[in-house]
Nucleic acid binder design. Structure first.
Lengths: 153, 153
DNA sequence: GATGAAACGGATGTCAC
DNA sequence: GTGACATCCGTTTCATC
């Protein structure tokens, strides 16, 4: 079900993405409306799930998460049961920040954020002991050039 | 410079990551402290850059961003000038949500979020016309199994 | 030096128009 | 969408450990 979004909604979402700590009055001024209608729109966007979470972004390196890997996975197992177990394993592991099922000869890609290379190996050993995986390639990030969750509305 | 973080800070950050819309009183109760010290710690964590942004996560699909690609890039150019131009191109393009410089034979990985496959092609053509790239592999996401920015503190 | 109680001012959520 | 209202919350001050 597609959510109907108009231009005012888009401007509100854009303002919230940039800085969600602003007051309703500030947002209203930025988008050219007033407090109450903006507040009602935000509530509806929340209820519709368009706004899924209100959160803070933390500096991973400052908190000691100094290693980031992109993990390319090929599997020989393609049945539903294997997939369910794999999915469960990913969801249970907090070091997996992203997981996508892919089209093409690589089946999955993960983004894994850990304290150091040793912690990645612990994760890797645990994962392959839980589910059968045919082939794994780990790409080590040397430098995060850009990182944003913002959508260009 | 490593930021000194104690256990109380970690609990506060964890609560904020989960839901940053909670009141100071709520957070204080969750972490087992009271309003003022929590407020002071959050202010310091902001100033230190540990909390880098206060934002909302939006549902990309609900907003019509239905295609997500991971782009593996190999380049033959490794001089500083090429790198600067490439970096500038990435920063300027809002569809690039992540960009990492890698160790190993693949030089860069991008995460690109666009409305559809055609929009990806427009992005791709624009990028290769701006900077010389030796080899590109695009991995198309069929399904986002997991996506979080939360760090396991 | 950090904590917790309390008071103040401003923001939020609700409603009538 | 506007303005007004009561309530709640963020922020500051201050006494205390």
């Amino acid at each position: 079900m597609p959510v109907r979004i108009d231009d005012m909604d888009r401007r509100i979402l854009s303002a919230l993405q940039q800085d969600a700590s602003r007051s309703m009055d500030d947002i209203a001024r930025i988008v050219g409306s007033s407090k109450t209608p903006v507040w009602n729109r935000i509530r509806k966007l929340r209820e519709a799930g368009v706004i899924s979470q209100h959160t803070v972004r933390l500096d991973a390196e400052a908190l000691g998460f100094e290693a980031c890997f992109f993990v390319l996975i090929r599997t020989s197992e393609h049945d539903a049961q294997w997939q369910a177990r794999f999915l469960e394993a990913l969801r249970a592991r907090p070091e997996v920040q992203e997981a996508h099922r892919l089209a093409g000869d690589i089946d999955y890609i993960l983004k894994v954020r850990v304290r150091n290379a040793r912690a990645y190996d612990v994760f890797y050993q645990a994962l392959i002991s839980e589910v059968k995986i045919h082939n794994v390639t780990a790409l080590l990030s040397m430098e995060e050039l850009k990182s944003t969750t913002m959508l260009p509305l």
